[in-house]
Design a binder for these strands. Sequence first.
DNA 1: CAAAGAGATAATGTATACAAATAGCTACGG
DNA 2: CCGTAGCTATTTGTATACATTATCTCTTTG
Lengths: 224, 224
Amino acid sequence: MSRASDRAYDVIRNMILSGELPAGAQLVEEALAEKCGVSRTPVREAMRRLESDLLVTRTDTQRSFVADWSLDDVADAFELRAMLEGQAARRAAERMTDAALERIRAANRQIGIAIGKPSPDVAGFLEGNREFHAVILEVAGSRRLASLLVTLVEQPVVWRTAYHYGREELRRSHNEHDELIAAFARRDGAWAAAIMTSHILRAYHAYADAHGGFAEQMHREAAE
Amino acid sequence: MSRASDRAYDVIRNMILSGELPAGAQLVEEALAEKCGVSRTPVREAMRRLESDLLVTRTDTQRSFVADWSLDDVADAFELRAMLEGQAARRAAERMTDAALERIRAANRQIGIAIGKPSPDVAGFLEGNREFHAVILEVAGSRRLASLLVTLVEQPVVWRTAYHYGREELRRSHNEHDELIAAFARRDGAWAAAIMTSHILRAYHAYADAHGGFAEQMHREAAE
DNA sequence: CAAAGAGATAATGTATACAAATAGCTACGG
DNA sequence: CCGTAGCTATTTGTATACATTATCTCTTTG
C-alpha cells in the first residue's frame, strides 16, 4: 500500500462498501483528498478506478456520486455473474489440476468449519468463499474473464448478501461447493457450469427474498 | 472533444488501433503528451482508460506497453463476446420497441448499400455494423452488460477482422443481421441469442482461418 | 409571482514542478 | 570474459497553483 493512489482507492472503496458513504452521496475530490491524507491527484485516479468498478457514477457534467443500485440493477448483475462464473467453472473443470483441486477442497473445509461453529462465523465463510472462487478463476486461465468478473463481484450488495444467510443457507452453499468439487474431479465442464450458475442464482434469490418487497429498505439503510 | 483527456484518449487509441503504435511498444507519458499537444495529466487519465479497455498493459513496475494478444487471447475474447452479445440480443428481443427495430433495420440497410458497391466499402460496413450492435445494446438496457462489452469489442483484432472478409462473408453477415431482425420482430429472445452467438463465433472463425497457422504474422505486421 | 440572467461559489480539468522509483550503463573485481 | 555494484538518466508518482466549467442564489423584469 505504498502508493498514495492505492491508499485512496482502498479508503474510498471501504467507505462505500461499509455504507459510510451512502448510495447517492456526492464524492468531492478535495474532501476525499483530505480524508485520505493525500492530494487530489491520486484521489482522481482512485475515482476513475471506482467508476470502472461501477461503484461510482458520474453525471454528464462530471460530478461523481456513489452508485445507486435499483433492484433491477441487482438482478442484472447477478444474471451476468451467473453466466460468467458458469463459464469460469466450465473452463476450470477442463483445465483442473490435482494441486488446484486440493486448494479448492481446503477452501471448502474452511467454510465447513466457519459455519459449523455455535454462531456462524460469517467473516470466515466469506474468506473461504473468496478463496474458493478465486482458485476456480485462476484455473480458468482467462485474463479477460477474470477482469470482467471483478467488476461484478466486488459490489456492496454481493458482500452484504451473505449476512442475510441463515445457517441453513450457509450449509446449502457449502454442499453446492462439494458438488462443484465432484464435477471438477470428473473434469466435467458442463456439469460444473450448471452447478455454478445455479449456485449464483440461488444466492440472488436469497437476497431478493430478503429485500424484494422493500425497495425502500436500501434507501433507509443508505440514509442513516 | 473539448476536454484534453478525451483528445488524448482518442489520439492514443487511434494510434494503437491503426498499428502506428505496434503491440509491445512502450508508452511513455511525456512523449504521448507532446504528440497530443497536452500535458501529462490528461495523458495519464487516458492511459488508465486504455488500460481498463485492455488495449494497454502495465508491468509490475508501472511501465505501460501496447497490449500483445496471443491467438489464445483472441479466442478467449471472442468466446466471451459471443456469450455476452447473445445475452444482449436475448434481452433486446424481450424489450424491443418498434422505433428501435426501425433503427436496426436502417443500420442494416446501410450495410447492404456498403457491401453492394463495386468494391466493398469496408468503412461503411463497419459504421453500419457499429450502429446495429449499439442499438441492440441500448435496447438490452443493462448498463453492466454494456460496460463489459465495450472492453471486448473495442479491440484492434476485432476491427481488423472485417478487412479479412471477402464479399461473400460480408453478405453472409448482412443476412445474419436480417435473421436477427426477424427474431427481434417476433420478440423471440432465445432465437435472437442463438443467432447472435453464432454470428460472433462465425466472425471469430473467419479471423482464425486467416491468421490461424501464422501466429508470427501478427508480429510481422506489428514490427513494420 | 414566475422566469431569466448575472454574479458569486464551488467543483472539476490542466499544467507544471518536484519527488520517488526504475532501468540502463559504466567501471570495477573476480 | 562475465557478473555485479553503483551511478546516471529516464520514467512515473504526487502536490500545488491556476483555468475552466458548472451550480446556486439573488436580483431584475415581464
